[in-house]
Design a protein around this nucleic acid. Structure first.
Length: 921
RNA sequence: GCGGAUGUGGUGAAAUGGUAGACACGCCACUUUGAGGGGGUGGUGGGCGUUAGCCUGUGCGAGUUCGAGUCUCGCCAUCCGCACCA
């Protein structure tokens, strides 16, 4: 009987669907395990073989955990709001909901063919109103809370109002936009509108004016992580800076906790570092400098990590967008400053990045007083100071900061060295080392001593205070687009007001076109009656990360109409034990989700501080393109090895008509009309193609579709091969070359069970040799699966099957545990063989430990082998071998020999230097 | 510039500090079949040798160790992330 993978795979996929094999319920009698994939955005192009890599790995682990007796939650859904569907809608007029539904159906079909063990009854789609109800709900909660720095958690705004009316602004230490000072009397005297303006400064979801990444090409603002090198990540349009009023999430309030709790996570160091850098904690001091524009006095606040260098301040610099610019520009300098600001504003983000080393600036006309020396220093304005970080103003110490140094050199400002023996004639001395000089009371201290001493001084004299600054900025939360979650906010007398919870979900209205209105409003401005009780509703929508921030919670209780997740479900499933996805979400989704979770944790809706305990980043699968070489001005193609003899052009050829770099010339002629009568110059009778590694994309003709692999080789082969390709975390090009090896393995496995006439499995007792093969496999596989080293696990299976095949072993005692262990990797063939062995039902319900009980750690003993009384190495020996067999076997001569001990063959290698080296074969 | 990762055959890759290159692709030889992207056996890092075997070999250079692909330090190269963050 042949291995008919098509029939087998169809059979078991419908079996799983019919029997709802992978549906799970909370079950207190079993330990839970939650395995999650980053859900996909269903694009029109469908899945290519790179997409399922992570899904296959997580599926293997899920199935393995199930075999080990865990109650495994392994859900899947779709991140269905997004720009591409809307761009498509603008072009074609087709509603994004229609496009999205179609793409989802296609994705589902492709996923099903690979044989994943998802519990589809828990599927979520972010564009489904029943789902986004809870996205909106969370937003309202954020609107209704502020972050109390003292308590270190979110608190209701009502509490804030209470404090304000009793003690004024000083009664609370809250995260806010700008620092405000008012008394209880002042608060109580405010109008409702004024009060709501003040509260907006504290809310976790708030509306505020900020410098945003505006993308004219997409007609919307973007978050920092949606912009790369001055271009939008989606679409690649240029991005510029613009001041706008936008909804924002006060993620920055959680910066400290987001940073500290990274320690508790099992994530890779590189990913943790990425988040650490993105959060960017720096410890220093905030100081106030008095500045004078004519006779008007202002306080400029600056942030520095080098408080020790205050004695070297020779000028101050303001960011062009700083609010102090206007106040400190003198009448004489007004024209020059305005010209500079206009120039700076014109630049796109892209140009600013490109010109980072170009020094520009303008003198404001004002002076500031160094609070320690009393000296007057000029106040400048320059782009190199960023408005969004610290206070938007700096004290410049050119001797010890390279940027200040470049600025001072360009504009001829003085440079005062503060460290003994440092040379600042060519460049600044940025290192935090050496002995202080020219620094008053700090003289003679090391830099490390001087920093805290300077801050102590500054605090004692009321000039400033210790401060920790974060690079992490608040997330801009509105998009001027249609295809996203509407904000459940309306404007009553111009005041942003939340809709009542029972009005949720606020569904997306129908619009005639998906473009902005003539007056420049977002597409929702086209909706017929976009009002609530007569008041206008917010017209922007939420960004892509809104719907993906809490989806892992919704899977726990996806059909709950009265809560995001019930207490019971949350307390059972808790958080994600294993999360698999790409690194591209390191500074976006993975920050927002953690923030969202912490917020809900503060409010008591979830029981875990962190959403994703262990995280694995699967590598990207790149495309492997093939090329043919056309001799110029002809329709003749020359094989790769001969191309240098002609003048040729390199042309991409569809990788699907190339096998092992050999072109199917007939298929090539049929591929495109232009090539219908192509001629070929072959080498050794074959046309060899060139190759290169590129991104997998349609235009490179290097997209390999998993459906095609399933057709030719089957899903089990695809699954095994993707794992066999190399370590999961590594990026690599897809190369179909080699898939035959894996397919051959499955056929060979099949032949252990079947010959021409049918099943040949016997109940004979296994030989020690065969048992050893099995136990070696079990030991290796368990270890490797637990450490996600799936490529070596597949190798271990191959080795085992090769050995069994060699011995013509067809004994149930061996084969049964073998296929149970294989079932996470190749579930269809395993189920089929399991059934052939006379078992009822799915293999998923087989309890793996029963089958491996006899394989225990005890079958191997570890001895330490010592030489001259010192432990040299440890040695694992089979139980049958005793310590005495090894002890004292130190040979004087270098030799290599076989050593028989306890019936086992041991190879003894004695290297020069008389050290025994024993390896058990 | 800062941070991280990676460097092993023709290829994808294995190696708790202990026989480097398992396993697989490809290639070569033999074999089987009417045929098939078939089945089987053997070989395959490089150099020398008819064989036995010898020499050499994990980006480069040091170090630790009886012993280093693995640990430490310094280079070089590639990839990724951040980037005027005061």
């Amino acid at each position: 009987m042949e291995y008919d993978f098509r029939k087998i795979e169809r059979k078991w996929q419908s079996y799983w669907a019919e029997h709802k094999t992978f549906e799970v319920k909370e079950d207190a009698s079993k330990p839970k395990y939650y395995v999650l994939d980053m859900f996909p955005y269903p694009s029109g192009a469908g899945l290519h073989v790179g997409h399922p890599l992570g899904y296959i790995a997580s599926d293997i682990y899920s199935r393995y955990k199930r075999l080990c007796g865990y109650n495994v939650l392994h859900p899947m859904g779709f991140d269905a709001f997004g720009l591409p569907a809307e761009q498509y809608a603008i072009q074609t007029g087709q509603h994004p909901a229609v496009t999205t539904a179609k793409n989802i159906a296609r994705y589902r079909e492709q996923l099903d063919r690979i044989g994943f063990s998802y519990d589809w009854s828990r599927e979520v789609r972010t564009c489904d109103p029943a789902y986004y109800k809870w996205t909106q709900w969370a937003f309202l909660k954020m609107f209704d809370h502020y972050y109390d720095n003292g308590l270190g958690k979110a608190q209701p705004v009502s509490r804030l109002v209470e404090i304000f009316s009793e003690k004024g602004s000083d009664g609370v230490n809250a995260a806010c936009g700008e620092e405000m000072h008012f008394t209880a009397e002042q608060w109580n005297a405010m109008s409702e509108k004024e009060k709501s303006g003040v509260l907006m400064n504290y809310r976790i979801a708030y509306q505020g004016v900020t410098s945003v990444n505006w993308c004219p090409g997409l007609g919307t603002v973007l978050a920092n992580d949606e912009v790369k090198e001055g271009y939008s990540v989606r679409g690649g349009f240029p991005v510029e800076q613009k001041k706008m009023t936008q909804w924002q999430l006060r993620v920055s309030a959680y910066a400290g906790r987001l940073l500290d709790d990274l320690e508790t996570l099992e994530w890779s160091d590189s990913l943790k570092d990425m988040q650490k850098n993105w959060i960017g904690r720096s410890q220093g001091a905030e100081m106030t400098f008095k500045a004078f524009n004519g006779d008007k006095e202002y306080d400029i606040k600056i942030f520095t990590t080098r408080a020790d260098t205050v004695f070297g301040v020779t000028f101050m610099v303001l960011a062009p967008e700083s609010e102090w610019v206007e106040k400190l520009t003198s009448p004489e300098q007004k024209e020059a400053v305005e010209a500079y600001l206009a120039e700076a504003k014109k630049k796109t983000e892209r140009e600013r990045i490109a010109e980072t080393h170009k020094v520009t600036g303008v003198f404001s006309g004002s002076v500031a007083i160094n609070p320690l020396t009393g000296e007057k220093v000029p106040v400048w304005i320059s782009e190199y100071v960023l408005a969004g970080y610290g206070t938007g103003a700096i004290m410049a110490v050119p001797a010890h900061d390279s940027r200040d140094y470049a600025f001072a050199k360009t504009f001829g400002l003085p440079i005062i060295p503060l460290i003994e023996g440092c040379d600042v004639s060519e460049s600044s001395f940025d290192a935090k080392e050496g002995i202080m000089c020219n620094s008053g009371f700090l003289n003679g201290m090391t830099v490390k001593e001087a920093i805290p001493a300077a801050i102590d001084y500054v605090e004692a004299h009321g000039i400033g205070r210790r401060k920790i600054n974060y690079r992490l900025r608040d997330a801009i939360f509105s998009r001027q687009r249609y295809w996203g979650e509407p904000f459940p906010i309306y404007f009553k007398d111009g005041v942003a007001t939340p809709m009542p919870e029972d009005r949720l979900p606020l569904e997306l209205p129908e619009v005639d076109k998906f473009l902005p209105t003539e007056s420049g409003e977002p597409p929702l401005g086209r909706a017929a009656d976009w009002t609530y009780e007569g008041w206008p509703i917010e017209k922007s929508t939420m960004p892509g990360f809104a719907g993906s921030s809490a989806y892992y919670l919704r899977y726990m209780d996806p059909h709950n109409g009265s809560a995001l997740v019930s207490k019971a479900a949350d307390e059972y499933w808790r958080n994600v034990d294993l999360y698999i996805g790409g690194t591209e979400h390191a500074t976006g989704h993975l920050i927002y989700s953690r923030f969202w979770n912490k917020f809900l944790y503060d409010l008591g809706y979830v029981c875990e501080k962190e959403p994703f305990k262990k995280l694995i980043n699967q590598g990207m699968i790149q495309g492997r393109s093939n090329f043919v070489y056309r001799i110029v001005n002809t329709n003749t193609f020359v094989s790769y090895g001969l191309k240098d003899r002609y003048e040729t052009t390199e042309i991409h050829v569809d990788v699907n008509i190339v096998h092992n770099d050999r072109l199917d010339t007939d298929a090539f002629r049929k591929w495109m009309p232009d090539y219908a009568d192509a001629e070929f110059i072959l080498e050794d009778g074959e046309y060899i193609c060139g190759y290169g590694v590129e991104k997998m994309s349609k235009s490179m003709y290097n997209v390999v579709n998993p459906d095609m692999i399933c057709d030719t080789y089957g899903a089990d082969t695809l699954r095994l091969y993707e794992m066999f390709l190399g370590p999961i975390e590594q990026s690599k090009p897809w190369d179909t070359k080699g898939i035959d090896g894996v397919h051959r393995f499955l056929k060979r496995l099949w032949r252990l069970f079947y010959d021409r006439d049918g099943l040949v499995v016997t109940d004979e007792k296994a030989t020690p040799e065969e048992l050893k093969t099995l136990h070696k496999l079990i030991g290796k596989a368990r270890e490797d699966i637990e450490s996600f080293s799936f490529n070596t696990t597949v190798s271990a299976f191959m080795i085992a099957v090769n050995e069994l095949y060699e011995h013509k072993c067809n004994k149930r005692e061996i084969l049964e545990p073998l296929i149970i262990l294989l079932s996470p990797f190749a579930p269809h063939i395993s189920e089929e063989l399991w059934e052939a062995l006379g078992h009822e039902g799915s293999i998923s319900f087989a309890s793996f430990p029963e089958y491996v009980a006899e394989y225990t750690e005890e079958s191997v003993c570890t001895y330490a082998v010592s030489f001259n009384g010192k432990t040299r190495f440890t040695l694992d020996l089979p139980k049958s071998m005793s310590k005495e067999d090894v002890e004292g076997k130190v040979l004087a001569e270098p030799l290599s020999a076989k050593y028989i001990a306890g019936g086992r063959v041991v190879k003894v290698i004695v290297v020069p230097g008389k050290i025994v080296n024993i390896v058990v074969k």
